[in-house]
Design a protein around this nucleic acid. Structure first.
Lengths: 178, 178
DNA sequence: CTCACATATATGCGATGTCCAATAGATGTC
DNA sequence: GACATCTATTGGACATCGCATATATGTGAG
């Protein structure tokens, strides 16, 4: 139910086509929210249908025409309503932990491989997050800038925590002979 | 696709009814995996249909009869296959971060409330995780015990990280006048 | 000339998941 | 006696999601 609002939020910053939306989502909120391309188009259609957004066809000569979507007053109100609504926090699913939970069916060596793979993936993700250009003076970008940098910092902090936890977990496993 | 395997994994530890399964899931893997009750029953039916588990009706006099589910050899093999299969790690969705990302549409005071609410929820979750009895000698419970304690430690580590991040984020907001 | 790639949108389908409600006996409480 | 709670299962309705696939045009590489 929240992709609607995420899209509404991004469109409120700047009107966009579905195609551009996909790219912006991947680059900005990608580390805590993903969206399938087809799902984006479907959601956009739903927003238009419900009057929360309007689409305007922009004729382009060097490219296929695109549908530019903007948030309506109704959509803006819905966005505010959502922001003020209570947030029920269901624990997020962690497939990796789910696997580790049952991994004692495998030999210890395999478990180490599981942890190593996880470490490699996380290192990459962390590097990608850290590579994002951070302006020296964050406050320059106003409240929105501070908040968006905070979500980035969140991703970095959790990635580091996960790496530390991997270290600790591998040390625990060292005591166990394979 | 993974609830199947989570259930298979738990059933491999001990045969259970759907009802007990729900409780065990909530108490053991609850902090990184949730399952709706009706979904559990449907998944169990699917497992039986596919021959990965068998159900046996146990007549109880003081309670309604129950269906005890056990993993078959086929199910056990499937579990091992899943453990060895590559794990594609899609970033988990964080509705709270999604909201914070667009929260600059609200007055700063509201944003602080958002953070405070999050802090209260997390403190509760952290306390719940820390309250879980941890045996002094974890290795006593073998490899499985070590791994399961590791998933618990993971939850605790991330909860603490999130609380620290909340502190830092609130400090950042202090500089901004409401 | 062909093939890959970027732009741009759309539909079908199945898997998965949540919410809600119904059923039903036993036990406990006010 | 009424009402809630625990055990235990089932089904319908509906939303969401991800994957695959289709279509169309322009650009640049080889």
């Amino acid at each position: 139910m929240s992709l609607r609002h995420a899209i509404l939020g991004i469109l409120s910053i700047k009107p966009m086509s579905g195609y551009e939306l996909k790219k912006v989502i991947d680059e900005s909120v990608g580390h805590f929210w993903t969206a399938d391309q087809s799902q984006i188009y479907r959601t956009l259609a739903g927003l238009v249908e419900d009057g929360l957004a309007v689409r305007r066809t922009v004729v382009q000569e060097e490219r296929p025409n695109m549908h530019l979507h903007s948030v309506t007053d109704l959509g803006s109100a819905e966005l505010d309503r959502w922001l003020a609504s209570p947030l029920k926090a269901r624990p997020s699913r962690e497939p990796f932990l789910a696997r580790l939970f049952f991994a004692d069916r495998m030999p210890v060596e395999r478990i180490r491989e599981l942890l190593d793979t996880r470490r490699r993936e996380l290192s990459g993700q962390l590097a990608a997050l850290e590579a994002i250009e951070v302006p020296a003076d964050a406050a320059e970008f106003g409240l929105g800038g501070v908040l968006r940098l905070a979500t980035l910092a969140n991703g970095i902090a959790h990635a580091r925590t996960e790496l530390d936890w991997l270290d600790a977990t591998e040390r625990r496993l060292e005591g166990i002979t394979s």
